[in-house]
Design a protein around this nucleic acid. Sequence first.
DNA 1: CGCTACATTGACCTTGCTCAAGATTAGTGG
DNA 2: CCACTAATCTTGAGCAAGGTCAATGTAGCG
Lengths: 245, 245
Amino acid sequence: MDQTTTAAILRDHVACECADMCRHCETRALSVCGPLESDDFLGLQRLNHPVTFPARAVLFNQESPVRHVFTIVHGVVRLYKLLPDGRRQIVGFALPGDFLGLALADGYGFCADSVTAVSACRFSRDHFADFADRHPAMLRRLHDMATHELALAQQQMVLLGRRDAEEKIASFLIVLQKRWARITGKISVTIDLPMGRQDIADFLGLTIETVSRTLNRMARDRLLVIVPDGVRVLDAPRLESLASA
Amino acid sequence: MDQTTTAAILRDHVACECADMCRHCETRALSVCGPLESDDFLGLQRLNHPVTFPARAVLFNQESPVRHVFTIVHGVVRLYKLLPDGRRQIVGFALPGDFLGLALADGYGFCADSVTAVSACRFSRDHFADFADRHPAMLRRLHDMATHELALAQQQMVLLGRRDAEEKIASFLIVLQKRWARITGKISVTIDLPMGRQDIADFLGLTIETVSRTLNRMARDRLLVIVPDGVRVLDAPRLESLASA
DNA sequence: CGCTACATTGACCTTGCTCAAGATTAGTGG
DNA sequence: CCACTAATCTTGAGCAAGGTCAATGTAGCG
């Protein structure tokens, strides 16, 4: 895990057999969609289309209507909004197991594209919505997910509105570390950062220069070491206190 | 509407008879909870407890578990999170018709207190959740609301992360104008601001001085006029272009 | 009238942005 | 395997938007 980055592992996984991917897909879909009855699960499974994307592929864009929703199986997707003059705000990164398509019930569109190669479960937006309407347990699960997303979004508002650059970076790293830990099942002092500095900047409301400077200052201060496609945490307590301060 | 501010009207409404308030309450509860069958409506009505709060009353706080959820009938409530060192981020203002309690399914708590005097429909959190579980139409409605809130939260992230002070203020004013318009049924060039400058600052990720300076500069530039408890828009097109630019 | 809370204004300073130049890394074709 | 190119990252110097600190103004209220 320290030699081979998660980014690389994810790239490899995408290359695996379709049959294997579908198995992943189903497991993910089940875990994401919560405690469904087994016939519900079969129904949902029938709606599922496994798909893969190379890095930089567009999943949604702000202009065109959304036809599909996705569950990410492997890889990382960035969700963002663009202002007319080109300024970008990344509103989230979708990691394996995440569901893409909660926030698009209304007219409010956003963009999504793959940071790495990605494999996903694709569902027709309409079929998925029908299925949810006919299965209250699933609707309930979707609602819990939406509620959870809302709480995260509010946490992100605090970060964007009231924290300085160092706190933003520290918080970003700690949150990502915990998300990877949930996915891989074990916590790692090496935090993979498959996204580039510009993506981190656009997520945290900073510039690429500030992200770079802050990370390198943290490295100089022995808080962490910068490694290819990520960082390795040296002083977890200090980083955590920065993140939550 | 131009002489008497909305803030004053809201204060008056709170003073009205309990019977009158309950009628308001039921109407609001129905409209908020969407297209329910009539017996559903009666069931929900039975769970409802009309309550009033003076200005500055605490509805939720970050520490203690949430026992009730609310639908606001009159008045304005601010929702916010506090950092350990006292920095505050207001994540939203709840206006008449808004539902309070979507984002608190998980452990993530936040604070809420009344900006003005408030009347509301109070529901036990558990009873409300049970009711939703037994009425898929209502659950569906709640989910749509959560999804809508999520879209708004993402819009707020763009504002906090990627817009300058002037754009933030302009956007805040235009959004509030549209929200009041939906509530009162007619658009008004006078935008009521029942919350103080500090609240606006903590909502937009600015300081009170920057809010004050920016508003007064806009007044000097003939974009608007500052009136007691609000502003009057003079140059709507220019304000709107600032808000969306 | 005087108290308190809130808003405004000014002077100054700091954080983070802008602009520009290198350094690294990754990808490509010979 | 290496040279060349393009993309990404780092670093520095200067600047400006917005924050900080402090003083003054204003409105509501007992």
